[in-house]
């Protein structure tokens, strides 16, 4: 009987020690995780604040939530860029799946979209890459290319690589490159340029 009682006491002691040891381990892990989170958030705040400072300093961009906001200097049109993911290194910002809407008096007059965009803040330049589409609601026109640069200071668009252009259902164009303005009011196709017009009246026989 005595032997049984001593064995039970010993087992209880071992259990208490084991529980205490496990509790200590868990506590240490928790503490480490908390410290890491704190460091990470401090780092993020620092990155975000330095990013915002850079954008405000040169490009006049603002980061609000998941959107970048800015203003086209020449026309005064406002624009906002929505995105899925943002990465930042040096002075270059990269956004994944960007949709940039350019607004005039509250209405969207043009929109850019592509696989990704590199925001060169100092050059005030957005470089869209991969299946880039510039849609002008103002002129019912679409410009497509594999790469497109938009300078938001003066609203100049440069499309490179397999450029195609369409105006309503009446005109389809193609070229190696194109220059245009934000709302496609003026488009210049160069490098093997061609147009196909669908006209209702031409040389009537």
């Amino acid at each position: 009987m005595r032997l049984l009682a001593s064995l039970f006491g010993f087992a209880l002691l071992i259990s208490v020690i084991a529980v205490g040891f496990l509790a200590k381990l868990w506590w240490q892990q928790e503490e480490r995780a908390q410290v890491e989170t704190a460091i990470q958030s401090e780092h993020n705040v620092a990155r975000r604040s330095s990013l915002e400072a850079l954008m405000a300093q040169v490009g006049g961009l603002k980061l609000r939530g998941e959107k970048l906001l800015g203003r086209e200097a020449a026309s005064g049109r406002e624009f906002e860029i929505g995105f899925d993911e943002l990465s930042y290194s040096g002075n270059v910002l990269k956004l994944r799946k960007p949709v940039c809407s350019v607004m005039d008096e509250g209405a969207v007059v043009a929109s850019f979209s592509g696989s990704s965009v590199i925001v060169s803040v100092q050059k005030q330049l957005l470089e869209f890459i991969g299946d880039v589409v510039l849609k002008s609601n103002k002129h019912n026109a679409i410009l497509k290319s594999s790469r497109m640069r938009w300078r938001w200071s003066d609203g100049e668009v440069l499309a490179i690589g397999g450029v195609s252009f369409a105006l309503g259902g009446m005109l389809i164009g193609s070229a190696d490159s194109a220059r245009a303005d934000t709302v496609l009011g003026e488009v210049e196709l160069s490098g093997r340029p061609s147009l196909r017009l669908r006209i209702s009246k031409w040389l009537k026989y």
């Binding site: 026109a141 070229a175 003026e186 196709l189 340029p193 147009l195 017009l197 006209i199």
Partner: peptide, 18 residues
């Protein structure tokens, strides 16, 4: 359908004034 294109090697372009 009417086709407009350029056969010039250099400096050829088509400008659209919408």
């Amino acid at each position: 359908f009417v086709k407009v294109y350029c056969i010039g090697q250099r400096g050829s372009s088509i400008k659209l004034m919408l």
